[in-house]
Structure formats: C-alpha cells, structure tokens
C-alpha cells in the first residue's frame, strides 16, 4: 500500500523541568503553591505562559512562579521566608538534571 502524505501538522509540547520526576504522580507537584495554577500556565498577572512568566527555585527545593514568589517576598508579612517551609528564602541556581556539560 502506498501512502501519500498530503498534509501534516506538527504538534509540540513543553513543560518546565522542575526536577520533580514524579510530578505526574503527584497532583500537587506541578502547580504553583501560591496561585495554584500549573507551572506551565502563568501567574495571575500574566497572560502568556513561558519565558515571560518563569519559575523560580529556592535552595529549599521549592518552586513557584517567579512573579508569585516575588510578590510574597515583597510583603512585610513574608519575613522573606519560603511560603512552604518558612526557611529564609534563597534563590537557587536553576537545576537542570541530565543536562550535557556546558561546551564553552
């Protein structure tokens, strides 16, 4: 049987690499704890997800939408603590697991 492709549509999917491999099993694992919107969505003050509404990683390993976390840290009530564990917030280097070593 010969098949002639008349038309094709490319479909792509993306998601943030949160370092949480079990995110699919863990219902709470892939939403921002502050706004409760999935990481792949955007924070309530943005309209387009992606690089303009990035995630932020804490050294305590907790992840949030950057805008949500910065808004919280900006309030006096936050005492600059992580909203999950109340440890002093320290922004971590983004962890990219399984990434090839930098070539430069």
């Amino acid at each position: 049987m010969k098949v002639k492709i008349k038309q094709w549509n490319a479909v792509a999917q993306w998601r943030w690499d949160t370092g949480n491999k079990d995110a699919a099993d863990d219902e709470e694992g892939d939403v921002c704890g502050i706004c409760r919107v999935p990481f792949e969505g955007c924070c309530p003050s943005c309209r387009v997800p992606g690089d303009d509404c990035p995630l932020i990683w804490g050294e305590c390993s907790h992840v949030f939408h950057m805008h949500c976390l910065l808004k919280w840290i900006g309030t006096a009530a936050s005492k600059q603590q992580c909203p999950m564990d109340r440890r002093p917030w320290a922004t971590a280097e983004r962890r990219v697991d399984n990434a090839p070593p930098p070539t430069t």
Partner: peptide, 27 residues
C-alpha cells in the same frame, strides 16, 4: 504567539478581569 501578545492589552481592556484573588478563592 507574538500577535496574540500584541492583542493582549486590547483584550484586557474589553473584558472585566476576574481578579487573581477570585481565581484563587474559586480553586
């Protein structure tokens, strides 16, 4: 996506926006 972004402001003005608080309370 870029053209969507350009339209963003226009859309925002037309639609009465549901506040972030309302969205979160709903959840």
């Amino acid at each position: 996506i870029w053209s969507m972004k350009k339209n963003e402001d226009a859309v925002a003005k037309k639609k009465p926006k549901t506040s972030a608080a309302q969205i979160r309370v709903q959840k």
